[in-house]
Design a protein around this nucleic acid. Structure first.
Lengths: 155, 155
DNA sequence: CTCTATATGGGATAGCATGGGATGACATGG
DNA sequence: CCATGTCATCCCATGCTATCCCATATAGAG
């Protein structure tokens, strides 16, 4: 699966296009579909992004729930309905739908933030505020993390 | 299998035709039959849609239930008896039978809603209400989902 | 300082959704 | 069996925009 690291700030142009950072493009799997999937984060004013492979994994996970169950329907309605598949053009740019930009309050600058298997898209100032709060929380709670074993053992 | 994402609103014309969104057409498998299958959802005022491959998978799943059992008969009666295979025309449109449109209260605008391996067709306002409720449920119940391992093993 | 990779800006084109007409297939009635 | 009506299918035109292509600027590495 993909691994997205680091943070890049690119410009949104008048046509609503923005360059996806080269290292993020490189991190995407060889695709049937050459692009990214974006959807609105329900926890913050940001967009969540990933490759199509992640969506396929999600789809399989949801498909393993009982067919026609409420849980399956509700998750599908909140995740897949909102997930936009955006093609990368030949120059490595995507065109972001306006309502996604609105959700994240983006007008000019776009911040791509690596988050491991996924990435997030923020308005740069909003991310600064968020990151400061996150740092304070991590420090206050002395958060730690067990590493997974390479073979995927339960943690 | 197919992966349907995002949400598209298209117009129903006077002949009862509507464009199937290009990305949904692209998501359909290379077909013996070039079209989609639609049937009335038994849970909501929407239509369920998929490719023929999904119908075949459903058929196999139902066939593995006890022969002549009530469950098998009931599912067959609600799904297969009601399922319409609708050809895509050369411009990527389908003609939707009136009683399917009636079930979903569709008169003019048709909302195609990606739901992973299937998609749904809603009247746009009805879906807004439904999605808000789904979001509230997902949030209230703190629904989570374990991702499948890539080889499909249970986690 | 030079070269290369990446991001940015702009124009052209092809694809998509929409609207409408023509034709052929199919069902129905005589 | 044939005629007729209905509608599914095919074809074409149009406008909008996503996609493609190309040029330029900038930053970083050698």
């Amino acid at each position: 699966m993909a691994l997205f690291l680091s943070t890049y700030e690119n410009k949104l142009d008048r046509k609503g296009r923005v360059s996806v950072p080269a290292s993020f493009r490189a991190a995407l799997p060889i695709p049937l579909f050459n692009g990214v999937v974006l959807f609105r984060s329900h926890k913050s004013q940001a967009l969540e992004g990933c490759g199509m492979d992640r969506m396929e994994t999600l789809s399989q996970s949801i498909d393993s729930l009982d067919l026609f169950s409420d849980a399956q329907d509700d998750l599908a309605a909140t995740i897949f309905a909102d997930a936009h598949q955006l093609n990368l053009d030949s120059d490595g740019r995507i065109t972001v739908p306006q309502h996604l930009l609105d959700h994240a309050n983006i007008t000019e600058r776009v911040l791509f933030v690596g988050a491991g298997p996924v990435f997030r898209i923020w308005e740069p100032e909003a991310f600064k505020i968020y990151q400061n709060e996150a740092r304070a929380k991590v420090k206050d709670q002395n958060l730690t993390l067990k590493l997974s074993k390479p073979n995927g053992g339960a943690s």
